[in-house]
Design a protein around this nucleic acid. Structure first.
Lengths: 225, 225
DNA sequence: CCAAAAGTGTTCCGTCTACACCCATGG
DNA sequence: CCATGGGTGTAGACGGAACACTTTTGG
């Protein structure tokens, strides 16, 4: 490839992944302790460098696949972080990506293998470099968008109960929601589909299982919870 | 500086600036024709490369200052664009920044000097590389935020009439707004302050001039128009 | 005197909120 | 039989949308 812009600096570019899961009614984040210098032993998001022959999203997907074994997971760019000394090792521009996964789909061996932990968002420790900023920007993103984009389903199994869905909203928004009002609003949303199936795990009476219908959503992707 | 991460690719990183102005009731964008290869002569956003010793925001401010002569203008990151072949010249990661300026503050000589034009958003031509995507992402950002962040004042002189302010909202949102309802809502917002001054330029009767009061805003930065 | 923009309230309707009780079942 | 979570409706408050006429003054 020609070097049209040869006189300019080239910089290290990385992607950092903010991986949210949902379990026990809490939002959780997958983080690990850094295994290299500088910052060895500090809590950190998991990241990777962007190589010359891959796009930013490819790099983010590569890192996420390595960590979770999952392709095609829900992922959004959070933003670029570029302070000069943000990384104590070397000058690195980092693009933060946020992913939402269903903890049940996740192979726990991979977690151990990479030395990762699920931590409650409330108990977030101090993280390496500017990773706390990335996390807080990601949460703001989720809060702003959860009412107009179908984010929440990515944190749940394919079949879920309305109570589970409500708990996701409560965890993301950080506030309690009235059960009756919540269900009233859900009923108006066509792409949240009631199935004939009943979940008997979490309650004795049994709760109806629902499903996110992608096709119906695709026909009319506007909603407001 | 030590090279902790030496084995990884280094990439060109640029910032591209989406500069919005407001004039004649329309949102306008400042763009120019590329003066270098590849893409010489194509319409393009104005950008610059990020050098080793400057942060992303420093780079964006540097480019914006060069173009507008203005420091401290309103600027937001739109996002990072990183497809492999997004720039036909060479692999470049680009971070898009959106700036809002008051056209009256802007020195038109600088515009001519850089060969820039104000174009109506509605008549946007095809732009170089993925710059059209950047612009459309920036507009979505403005639309989402104009009701909860004090963006609009950046597009107006320090003193403005309510009709002008309404036109800004209409241009950004792309829809007409009822004058009485708009003014009712404005009255509830403490940091939009009526002055004693009267503008006689746009009307024979004269219109009251208003001002955005930063101090009052800082005390309570939550509002909803 | 008239064209042109500024300014001003009320009513209606739909949406959001608050709120409490019965149901089904496993243990 | 009782503890546990599932499921349901209504009334009142509030906020947003629709809507038309009077005022001022420069030309």
């Amino acid at each position: 490839m020609a070097t049209f812009y040869g006189e300019h600096s080239k910089l290290l570019v990385s992607v950092d992944c903010i991986i949210f899961g949902f379990e026990g009614g809490k939002l959780k984040l997958l983080i690990g302790k850094r295994s290299m210098d500088p910052g060895r032993g500090e809590w950190s998001l998991y990241g990777g460098f962007v190589e010359a022959e891959e796009s930013l999203t490819d790099a983010a997907n590569r890192v996420l696949f390595k960590l979770t074994g999952l392709k095609k997971l829900y992922m959004k760019q959070v933003g670029a972080f570029g302070a000069i000394d943000r990384d104590p090792g070397e000058r690195v521009i980092s693009i933060a990506y946020c992913a939402l996964i269903n903890v049940k789909d996740y192979d726990d061996k991979l977690r151990e293998q990479h030395g990762l932990e699920w931590v409650n968002l409330e108990d977030m420790p101090q993280l390496y470099s500017d990773h706390n900023d990335m996390v807080s920007k990601a949460i703001h993103l989720l809060r702003r968008r959860i009412n107009t984009e179908p984010l929440s389903f990515n944190l749940l199994p394919e079949l879920f109960t309305l109570t589970q869905l409500q708990h996701v909203y409560e965890a993301v928004l950080g506030e309690e929601i009235d059960k009756r009002n919540f269900r009233k609003r859900i009923k108006q949303i066509d792409f949240i589909e009631k199935t004939e199936l009943i979940d008997k795990v979490t309650s004795k009476r049994g709760a109806a299982l629902y499903r996110f219908n992608k096709r119906i959503y695709a026909e009319d992707p506007s909603f407001k919870l």
